[in-house]
């Protein structure tokens, strides 16, 4: 290989990128350690019941979102590929809508529609949480659908289905016992990406007045000095873990490109 010229320039570009990535993190770490004693910001955050409460709430919401989203999308994508391929473009169009409708617009509409009879979701806690889950399903729709759809394309679902049918399986059994196990990697990457989106999300949770992780951090930043830095780093670490998990899963299959959203 002879093409080495310009290599120094490329190293500089790379270093600039590394600086951009890490300076904010280092600065945050630096700031979080300024509290006395050194780890006070972390210990007091971890002991704050609101921290654990909001994190737990977001995790539960993420879990419900992932389950509901899979229950909705897997049968749909399966059915589209197997029985109604002519519906593909319409379904794909719908799954791309969240790219067109920003979270702030979505929650705007959701609040206006579901804060009055006949469907007064926002009048109860459980109703608001349900609306939050619905919002998150919409936000994760493009990623989830693509992950599942690619997963389905990579296995021969028609033959698998026919084989299962010839042995007398009904469609529920086929989905549960045959299709789902073969989609494991695709489903898990979709799930972890959704987890990352839900944990970091602020806009929808804030307007629905939910005690989620994003709004908690926002409130914390208005009242405390060092703790927000600590919690920000923890939040970054959680995103990081989710992404590592996806990269790990994607090792043996073709890695999907995830597009950031929901800022």
């Amino acid at each position: 290989m002879k093409r080495r010229r310009g290599s120094i320039a490329w190293w500089l570009v790379f270093l600039l990128g590394v600086l951009y990535f890490f300076l904010p993190l280092v600065a945050t770490l630096d700031f979080s350690l300024k509290a006395k004693p050194p780890f006070a910001a972390y210990t007091s955050s971890l002991q704050d019941p609101k921290f654990l409460g909001s994190l737990l709430y977001s995790l539960v919401i993420a879990g419900v979102t992932i389950t509901a989203s899979l229950a909705l999308i897997v049968p749909t994508a399966y059915w589209v590929q197997l029985r109604v391929p002519r519906a593909r473009s319409l379904v794909e169009f719908v799954t791309l809508l969240p790219f067109v409708i920003p979270a702030v617009v979505l929650v705007f509409g959701l609040i206006r529609v579901y804060s009055r009879p006949p469907l007064p979701f926002t009048h109860t806690d459980i109703g608001s949480s349900a609306l939050l889950v619905a919002g998150y399903i919409v936000l994760s729709l493009p990623y989830m659908y693509r992950a599942v759809d690619t997963g389905l394309r990579s296995i021969d679902i028609r033959s698998l289905t026919e084989a299962a049918q010839s042995m007398g399986a009904g469609w529920l059994t086929i989905l549960w016992r045959v299709i789902l196990p073969n989609l494991r990697v695709a489903l898990l990457s979709g799930a972890f990406l959704t987890l990352a989106i839900v944990l970091g999300e602020f806009t929808i949770a804030n307007f629905l007045a939910r005690p989620a992780f994003g709004p908690y951090l926002n409130l914390l930043s208005q009242s405390k000095a060092y703790e927000p830095a600590a919690v920000s780093l923890i939040s970054f670490g959680l995103t990081w873990l989710a992404m590592i998990a996806i990269a790990f899963l994607g090792r043996d299959t073709r890695t999907r490109i995830e597009i950031g959203g929901a800022h």
Partner: peptide, 27 residues
């Protein structure tokens, strides 16, 4: 891998991280 994380890292914690970096007292 970094890009996967960073493109999904936004909102409140990102804004805070930049305040700690380039704010009046930022690093």
């Amino acid at each position: 891998t970094f890009s996967g994380v960073a493109s999904n890292f936004a909102g409140v914690p990102l804004a805070l991280a930049f305040i700690f970096t380039l704010g009046q007292l930022g690093m």
